[in-house]
Computed example of a mutant assay.
Amino acid sequence: MVKWFWQRDKPRRTLSLRSRGELGDAMRVDFAELAPELNRFLGQAAYLQLGYFETLTRLIRATPELDEKEALARAAGAALSKHRGILEIIREQGEDPTEIMLPFQEHLDAFRRKTIGLRPRETLLAVYITAGMLDDFYLALASSYGETGARVADILSEDDDTGQIVTILRHTIESDGEWRSLLSMWARRLVGDTLLVARQALRTERLAEDGDRVEPVYTELMGAHARRMDAMGLAA
């Protein structure tokens, strides 16, 4: 049986955040109290992956080099695989995936439009940064949902096939000082919008009283972001 690129067996990616066991019981409990209801968690996580897939496929059309098209196709396939995995969990809950995702379409599409750069390289960096930070965030959030959350964590922990994307971006940055400056500034703009998406995924009524409880998670997200930027030769 032939397997398409998104169906190939893939290694699990190494988590950028510390494992749930290293976060500590108090922090996990506090974060769980801010976690949204399960359907909200699943709907947003699934739609985010679909958005990554859509943006990457658009970038394929805008990219003339064949090797870069292949790299983007692999990353798009990984996002689609994660999307489908979460949809399967939603269906097993007896829910309609379209209905579960629909409330978040407008908001997350608006976020994705804000991360579309004037140039394909800016958009490629945006996908790499936002997907990395939000996958890490939802991995941390998944610990609030027992066995179902563990299954989502397994899906989000799969290899995202972005290794070649990092290589493409690093070569671009190393080739021209203006690209380095431009992409550094663009990356800094993306962080605020991405953290806002993460914040809005939580129980907003609890954030007003207990917002400081999520700060340690934001600290971890920023640490992982800094490591991604370092890998490309950019300062966070």
Rank of each mutant, 00 (worst) to 15 (best):
L196I: 10
R13M: 11
L80G: 10
R121S: 10
Y138A: 14
I165Y: 06
V217H: 00
M232H: 04
A187T: 08
L134P: 00
A187Y: 11
A126T: 00
G117M: 01
S184A: 10
W4N: 08
L183C: 00
K69Y: 12
L50E: 03
Y47K: 03
M185I: 12
E33A: 14
Q200M: 12
Q93I: 02
T63D: 07
M101W: 00
G85R: 04
T98V: 10
Y128N: 02
F111M: 04
E95T: 04
T123L: 09
F53N: 00
V29R: 11
A26F: 10
I168M: 00
G117H: 02
L56P: 04
Y145D: 02
H83C: 07
L108D: 01
L66W: 08
R206Q: 03
E22L: 14
R189D: 15
Q105M: 13
I116C: 12
Y218T: 08
D210L: 13
E95G: 08
R189M: 07
K10L: 01
T130I: 08
G117D: 07
S16D: 09
Y145Q: 02
L207V: 14
R84I: 12
M222T: 11
V214W: 03
Q44K: 11
I89C: 09
L50F: 01
D193A: 13
D230I: 14
T204I: 07
D160S: 05
